[in-house]
């Protein structure tokens, strides 16, 4: 049990020192704080948490719970009109997981997530390192470019990418057919084939995710002291060695959290896929987890079961990260 403390809590642990998981013993108190702790003060941290906990519990926790429960029930049209739902055990899960199509969706989603997260991290870290090694002018230009891409609303981005990839007047087909001489690309539809649909989606997702990675990692790289870098240089470490053995290890905490976020975001990608589907792609062949669950919205039980499966996949992909982060950070 952690002893509830009143006036001043111990300073937050410094970075990289894991906070003790063990009960915090009341430290010897200075004279000013010798009075017994008033009840109000012991209560106050909980009162401060209430406003944050209530919306999260109501709008996330409760739907999550309800969906989980309903995934074990038969919830159809009759239940919409007030009939009590029937318990069906794992029937919904069995139905979903014995469907090869569902496995296709799961496999595609995981593949899409890992490819996109990996590409985003590689390009992002590459650009962040590039920022540390170029002059002020080039750095500013690249930073502004990335910021513009980062700041643009997703829907606007999706809209302009559709226009760029437009089969008839899109500039990408023009570029391929005209200056690059690939005549067959003149009327090419990019989203009609699943493989090229995912290619377009990957280009867009990586393009919009990279700036966040670049700026987070670049900010981390700036924290690496110049003296350390110079000392390494004097000792004969080349640029690659300095990056590999010095800079990257020192920004590891940033890389971890940014990588984790990329995996989570790319697994739950919805808007980009949905908008591209609406642009005329075959939906059944291009569903990923998010759009597939959306397409199940009329079958509440199935959607609940599918969402639970998605949650399990997310945890499966991230549990390693989370455990590392908890060990190092809390």
């Amino acid at each position: 049990m952690t002893a509830p403390r009143t006036t001043p809590a111990p300073p937050a642990p410094p970075v990289s020192t894991p906070a003790p998981d063990v009960p915090v013993e009341p430290a010897p108190r200075p004279v000013v704080r010798a009075r017994p702790r008033p009840f109000r003060a012991r209560l106050s941290p909980y009162l401060l948490l209430v406003p944050a906990l209530v919306p999260v519990a109501v709008a996330l926790g409760w739907p999550l719970l309800r969906q989980f429960v309903i995934s074990f029930q038969e919830y159809g049209l009759a239940q919409e009109f007030g009939q009590p739902a029937e318990w069906v055990g794992f029937d919904n899960y069995t139905a979903l997981l014995s469907d090869p199509y569902v496995w296709g969706v799961i496999g595609r989603s995981i593949a899409f997530c890992l490819v996109n997260a990996a590409l985003t991290m590689v390009v992002g870290v590459g650009l962040a390192v590039l920022l540390t090694r170029v002059g002020t002018a080039a750095r500013t230009v690249l930073q502004v470019g990335l910021l513009l891409a980062w700041g643009t609303p997703v829907l606007a981005t999706m809209t302009v990418w559709q226009w760029l990839f437009d089969s008839q007047y899109g500039v990408i087909n023009w570029l391929l057919a005209g200056p690059l001489g690939a005549e067959g690309m003149r009327q090419h539809s990019w989203i009609i084939e699943p493989a090229s649909f995912y290619f377009v989606a990957t280009v867009i997702v990586v393009w919009m995710s990279v700036p966040f990675v670049v700026f987070s990692v670049y900010a981390g790289l700036l924290q690496v002291p110049d003296e350390v870098m110079e000392a390494a240089q004097l000792d004969g470490a080349g640029p690659w060695q300095r990056l590999r053995h010095l800079q990257l290890p020192m920004v590891k905490p940033v890389l971890m959290i940014v990588g984790l976020l990329q995996v989570i975001w790319d697994l739950r990608v919805f808007t980009q896929i949905y908008v591209l589907q609406r642009a005329g792609a075959p939906t059944r062949e291009t569903h990923l987890l998010g759009t597939y669950i959306y397409s199940l919205s009329k079958e509440f039980s199935m959607a609940g079961a599918m969402a639970t499966i998605m949650l399990v996949i997310t945890l499966g992909l991230t549990v390693f990260y989370i455990r590392r982060m908890l060990r190092e950070d809390v």
């Binding site: 941290p45 989570i264 987890l289 669950i293 199940l296 959607a303 991230t318």
Partner: peptide, 30 residues
Amino acid sequence: FRFRGRKSFIVTILVVQMIPAEGLFISQYR
């Protein structure tokens, strides 16, 4: 503050961010 449940709260905050909203929206709609 150091209080009982502090660590659980932080873990909850972390885990909640893992929850794919895209799997929840139908339930939230209801």
